[in-house]
Design a protein around this nucleic acid. Structure first.
Lengths: 136, 136
DNA sequence: CAGTATCCAACCCGATACTG
DNA sequence: CAGTATCGGGTTGGATACTG
């Protein structure tokens, strides 16, 4: 049976309460999701096989990678190409839509790398002020 | 006491295991976090007061908004200006660093809004194919 | 108004075992 | 290799009560 116990995945708690989350936020949460971000960035370079992607990202369980890829595939961002061979071979790549998204995400990632130092400095300053405030 | 039971917040599970997550991913997760994204986008327009921000975002609890703002403040992205008046008034705004980050995030958000239709179509196609495959 | 502290449910996510 | 099913720990996040 294909009925998974878990919901659509990656896109988290749709709310629980009566009202549903607007589609806009849902899509935004998929592309900004923990693993979604990293998958999109990796696939921007080239297509990847499943385990290849897993190694490239590092520290992601099979389950979460599968969920993430399925969500992104469903959203039309990732293309899944399963070749009928033994052993199985599945290639994942970006669709045109996915490439657009991935480029936005990459912008964010590159900014992060560039400015990480500034962030860490800010953090140290914040912590120092906090520590000082607790005593004096 | 200022010792919160909960950790640094927003930036989630640092791993649990021995090895720590690299700072790069940590920062990336802060700016792509569920509420971090929305806060940054709102603050790009103008400064907001706490409850103003809460209403503008909608469906965010005080707790999560507080946590998110504190994390972003610690990372040097958000400036907190608490005025010593009764009743209290606290304004939140972006720092220069935060504005840079927020502009990246806005790019992503604008892409999402623009292409949401395409995503929804893709989703319907995916679901239709799935439903068909289960029977045939 | 702007938080802080605590309780508790829901859920994410990883580890493991198993299928094709 | 690629993926599914299940279990369990830890985190998220809302509701409530309280402070200044």
């Amino acid at each position: 049976m294909a009925v998974s116990e878990e919901p659509a995945a990656v896109g988290k708690y749709d709310t629980g309460d009566g009202e549903a989350m607007c589609p806009y936020r849902l899509v935004l949460e998929h592309v900004t999701s923990r693993w979604g971000v990293l998958v999109l960035i990796e696939l921007l370079d080239r297509p990847y096989r499943f385990s290849e992607l897993r190694r490239a990202i590092g520290r992601v369980s099979e389950k979460m990678l599968t969920q993430t890829l399925q969500t992104l595939e469903r959203d039309g961002l990732v293309h899944r190409d399963a070749k009928p061979v033994i052993p199985p071979r599945v290639d994942y790549s970006l669709t045109d839509l996915g490439r657009e998204a991935a480029e936005q995400v990459r912008g964010l990632a590159e900014w992060t790398q560039k400015r990480m130092g500034a962030v860490q400095e800010a953090r140290e300053g914040y912590d120092a002020r906090k520590a000082g405030a607790e005593q004096g």
